[in-house]
Each structure stands twice: as structure tokens, then as C-alpha cells.
Design a binder for these strands. Structure first.
Lengths: 220, 220
DNA sequence: CAATGTTTCCATCATTTGATGGATCATTAA
DNA sequence: TTAATGATCCATCAAATGATGGAAACATTG
């Protein structure tokens, strides 16, 4: 029994899938309240009743978007985990920052939707928090700050949250922050990565910061 | 010629001022789109036409809220500047974190409104960005990372932004993050402050982090 | 008090928005 | 071919929403 989401992904040219894609972009750009079903239908080029036929009410469509989103993020975490395995802590952090920045920068609606989920009291009951809790724990383990999901200290969680949120902030807020920084679009991502590494790596490693790749003496 | 805002603040019991207060809270909680003029009027206990009489259209009221907000923030920055003067860099950062966390935690709608302003494409043209650019530069100077507003490097700005956003994130996202951390309401603010100091001070000072108050040799 | 200005509310509009029923067209199975 | 199922659109609804006109209440001042 394939879920509606799997069904939609199987055929990306179907209207059902195109609705999901457009909804993702528009919800990310204008939020749940700021996006109307007519906006989505118009973006796809269909009638709104087709949208309702495929996804039910607006909140259901939004929920589908969020679930779809989280699966994409989990994929990225697996990539980070694979690349980070066996490297030094400083390297692992650098890899995490690079991979997440690149991924989110390519699909900016992701970070927008996540941030809106964190900060707006929405009546919809998409259980985003459980997912995020899992993500946080996963990063903590991948960074070697904890050994299993059940034993992550609040301190470690809070530190990961800061890192995670900082990435989201910079990606989502690009149109707002970039003019303030006064750099062009290509330089922005580099400044962001550099800043995050500069600020966060020394604290985690308790030492000198970036300092190149995988020093021979693998200080833990 | 007193501005409408000054006029409203002069008499906090007037309906005009009470509308502004309620609007501030509700816009902060539900965003611009998610807040209706009827919600605000109902919160104050008046008819919506009274609201329109005092503040004009909805976007004008929102603009007044944002302006009001920014003046409050500027006041806090002056407090930080005064307290930080003459202290070590680590102390100045610690003071900034403490003061801003306490202030924002007392009026959480402030950080919500700021974050919504950063991340949602709103059609309203409240020039929030210029204000924020000024705030960023002010902190940079107060922290001793720059000497005048015109000569703040993108790197310094980006680092301040990370700090500033991290505070906003934790305060605005408390209802979301606190359950994940598994701490109670009173402990949350302490964990946040501790985390921010732990992560950010070492990077700025290039050294050992918090390490107590104002070391005798005032290393720059 | 009378006149003038300010504030408040009631009634009402025009749009927008979420949502649905039913007709139509396409596709597939028997 | 025919019946059934799936997909799409048109027309329409009811509720919510931003906004306004005008009458009434209230306050201020000469």
C-alpha cells in the first residue's frame, strides 16, 4: 500500500506531484496563512477543485509538504554521517556545515518552512518537533558529542540547535542579510560557511578553530 | 507635532495605545497574515471601526508596531553599551548576551516579529533592514570589532548576525525547543545563555571562553 | 448652554478564501 | 463496445475579512 507521497514522487509529471512541488515553494515563501489554494492551483495551471481532489483540505496538503521535507533532510544527514565517519571533530563539523549549507541553499524553501514551523503558532498538528528532536540527536551522534540517542545532554542539544538554526537563518534570510553584508550572491554562501566555522568550531574543539584537515594526531 | 506613536505612548490607557499593544502581541504570535483586525479589536474590547479610525489600514498599524519595536531595541542597545564600556571583550559579549536574553524573554513578541520580518516576504515596505543594519553595526562597535559605523567588515557583521539571530531563535522558539531540551521554564533561559557564551565567546576572544570577569591584563 | 471636535459603535459592502457538487472528458478493464 | 474508474473543470456556497459611511455618544471650549 504505497502512501500518497510515494505515489506522487513516483510520477513527478503528474498533477498530484506538481501540486506538491508548487505548494512546497509557495508555503515556504508566504507561509501557511499567506498561501491560498488558488495561488497553488494557478502556479500549477489547474483548477482548485483538482487540488482538493488530490490532497484534501489545505492543512492536509501542508502536512504532506512537511513530511516530504523531513525525508529530504534525513537523506542529507545520512550523507553527512557517511562523509564524516572517521574524521576529526573539526573536520566533521566543517563537513556538516558545508553539506547543509549547500543543500539548503539549493532549495531555500526548506529552511523557510522549518523556521516558520519553529516560530509560528500554527493550529495544524504536524508533529514537526519529534522529527527535529531526532535530527538534533542524529547530528550530536555524528559529531561525536553523544554515543546513543537516549543519552544526549541538554547542553549538547542546545549547542547543536544553535549551529542548526544559524544555518537556517542565513539561508532563509539571504534576501534580508546579504544587502546588509554588502556581498554578491556567490560570495554570500562562502561568507556564511566561513563565519559558522569560525564561530562554532573553536568552541566544540576547545582549540584553534579550522586549522586545516585531519591533523595526524587525532585529538579527541 | 507629536507623532501618532508618541501620542499613543503618552497615554497608555487610551484605546489607541491599547490597540497598539494588542496588535504587537497578536502580530507577533500569528504573523501579519494570520492576525485579523477583528482579532485585535476583540482583544481590546472595541469595534473594528475604532481600530481603523485610529490607525488606518492594517498595514499601517503593522508599520507602527514595527517602529515601536525598534525603538525598544535601541534602548536596550544603549543599556548594553553603557554597561559594557571599559570591560574586556569576553565580558562585553557576556553582558550583551545577558541583557538581550533577559529583555527578549520578557517580551517574546519582539523576537517573533523580528524573525517574521527577516524570513517572510511581506509586501509591506517597513524599512526594517536599514534599522537592523544599524543595530548590527552598533553591536559591532560596542563589542570593539569596529571603530565606526562605516568601517565594519562583512566578516564582523556576519559574526554579529549569528549571535543576534541565535538569541532571537532561542527566545522565539522556546515553546518548540524547550521540550526537546527537556528542561523547565526557569532553567531554559540559563541553558540558552550558557550555550551562547560557550559557543561564541571563544571564537571572538580566540581563547579560553568565559573564564570569569575582567582579567587584570586587558588583552585586546 | 451651544457649538465644535473627537471617539465609538452599528450596519453594511465588496472581495477573498476554503470547500463542494455535479457535469464532462480520459483511461482502463471486461 | 460498454461499464467503471480516475481526473479535471465549471459554477457556486458560506464564512471570513478588510474597509467604510453615518449616526450616536462623549468631551472640550467659547
Amino acid at each position: 500500500m504505497p502512501s500518497p507521497l510515494e505515489k506522487a514522487r513516483k510520477n513527478p509529471d503528474s498533477n498530484k506531484a506538481r501540486i506538491l512541488t508548487a505548494a512546497r515553494r509557495l508555503f515556504g515563501e508566504y507561509g501557511f496563512q499567506g498561501t491560498t489554494t488558488r495561488m497553488i492551483a494557478k502556479a500549477v495551471g489547474i483548477d482548485i477543485s483538482t487540488l482538493y481532489y488530490h490532497w484534501g483540505e489545505k492543512a492536509d496538503l501542508y502536512e504532506a509538504v512537511i513530511i516530504d521535507l523531513n525525508e529530504g533532510i534525513e537523506t542529507q544527514f545520512k550523507i553527512i554521517e557517511r562523509q564524516a565517519r572517521g574524521r576529526s571533530l573539526a573536520d566533521r563539523l566543517g563537513i556538516a556545515i558545508d553539506v547543509m549549507c549547500d543543500y539548503l541553499h539549493e532549495s531555500p524553501e526548506v529552511s523557510n518552512l522549518l523556521l516558520l514551523g519553529y516560530f509560528s503558532k500554527s493550529k495544524n498538528e504536524v508533529s514537526l518537533d519529534e522529527k527535529v528532536a531526532g535530527h538534533i540527536a542524529n547530528i550530536a551522534i555524528a559529531m561525536g558529542l553523544a554515543t546513543d540517542k537516549q543519552h544526549v545532554t541538554p547542553q549538547a542539544k542546545a549547542r547543536i540547535m544553535t549551529l542548526w538554526n544559524s544555518v537556517l537563518n542565513f539561508i532563509s534570510g539571504e534576501s534580508f542579510f546579504r544587502p546588509i553584508l554588502g556581498v554578491d550572491k556567490t560570495a554570500y554562501l562562502d561568507v556564511v560557511k566561513e563565519t559558522l566555522k569560525f564561530l562554532l568550531i573553536p568552541a566544540f574543539t576547545g582549540g584553534t578553530g579550522e586549522g586545516g584537515s585531519t591533523p595526524p594526531g587525532n585529538r579527541q
